[in-house]
Design a binder for these strands. Structure first.
Lengths: 189, 189
DNA sequence: ACAATTTGCCTAAGGGGATTAGGCAACAGC
DNA sequence: GCTGTTGCCTAATCCCCTTAGGCAAATTGT
């Protein structure tokens, strides 16, 4: 029997592709085994279990997302940075819905600590350097931005804004305008 | 054999309770059968299948949420209405995490049309009557509010804001202040 | 009150995914 | 070429989903 050359990394990448094709919750050890034309049990030499697979895909997605965001942020500030950052999330979710869903996967504290989650938070804070916010308002703003981006992208992905005017792209642009205005004029307590 | 008296309604309610206890994705026809001390196959006289069960729970959650929101909105306007509405979502999600997750369940067009989704949208629009927005900005604002509420609640439920200062309640209040300010001063295109 | 009918829950059976134990063949290093 | 390790396999167990067909309990009509 010829060996196929499975590794945790190859399985994770293939799992991510599978997620984008059929949805993250349809990513299964069995489906992955079929994809490699290998018996299911064989994967257990490389993966601890099904949760391990999903965690790895989630970590991959978080890394990719952070990399793209870092790229987009380079050399930008103010509203420019805000929009670039936001678009990275939205575009990633549209290009890779399965991976985006994976990035929402509930990680255990172990994995969460090792994830790119920290980079995301840092970058969101970096954007706010272009605005005049001090703590604790900065944290409130970070949380709000995260909520809007995640919320909008989730709802859009779930089909919430299709089949109704105006265009989702239009709303997205205007919401970014509104957020920029809000950050420039954050209300005092 | 004595009959237990299963009905789709009782199963749906029990499913919702189960969801709150163990998580919506752990809600299974088998677990529900165990809860009623009945064989699994017996449930299929009342439910079409597993997806049917989940859809029913989702519809129940959407109704409950809409009822609470309608209640909270009665007699309120402006920021008062905004905060009351937002708190309904957040409180419901904290009291009933499984149901809240169910409300996010992807419904087929059939079920979606019969759901309380429309009421939610109408109520969000009603809140905006207290502000001076015309179309299409009103729709943009509706979408933004939905995104913030859903996004914040999701992130909070996923544990995103615990273990870090300031308190999540604090951020929530300040974000509502900020949204109110933004709606009173929505930027021109 | 009792027969006829409907209906609720059951047993049985088949299919798929997760996971573990134990075996043998392919590879790497000497 | 021999040896030890590793990769993939078979086999077995468990849990969930779903359908088919049967018997008994509730309900209905007389």
């Amino acid at each position: 029997m010829t060996r196929v050359g499975l590794t945790a990394e190859r399985l994770t990448r293939a799992g991510a592709e599978l997620a984008d094709e059929v949805g993250f919750d349809q990513v299964t050890v069995s489906a992955l085994a079929r994809r490699f034309d290998v018996k299911v049990a064989s994967l257990y030499s490389h993966l601890k279990n099904s949760q391990d697979l999903k965690t790895r895909i989630a970590l991959l997605a978080l890394e990719e997302l952070a990399d793209r965001a870092a790229d987009a942020l380079a050399g930008r500030a103010g509203k420019d940075a805000l929009a670039a950052f936001a678009n990275v999330y939205r575009d990633y979710a549209r290009e890779h819905p399965g991976r985006y869903a994976a990035a929402q996967f509930r990680l255990d504290p172990q994995a969460a600590a090792a994830s790119a989650g920290g980079r995301h938070a840092q970058m969101t804070r970096a954007i706010l350097r272009g605005y005049d916010l001090t703590e604790p308002d900065q944290t409130h703003a970070v949380r709000m931005l995260g909520s809007v981006f995640h919320g909008y992208v989730s709802l859009e992905l779930a089909g919430g804004f299709s089949h109704s005017a105006p265009d989702s792209q239009e709303s997205w642009s205007r919401i970014l305008d509104a957020l920029d205005a809000l950050l420039r004029n954050w209300p005092a307590p």
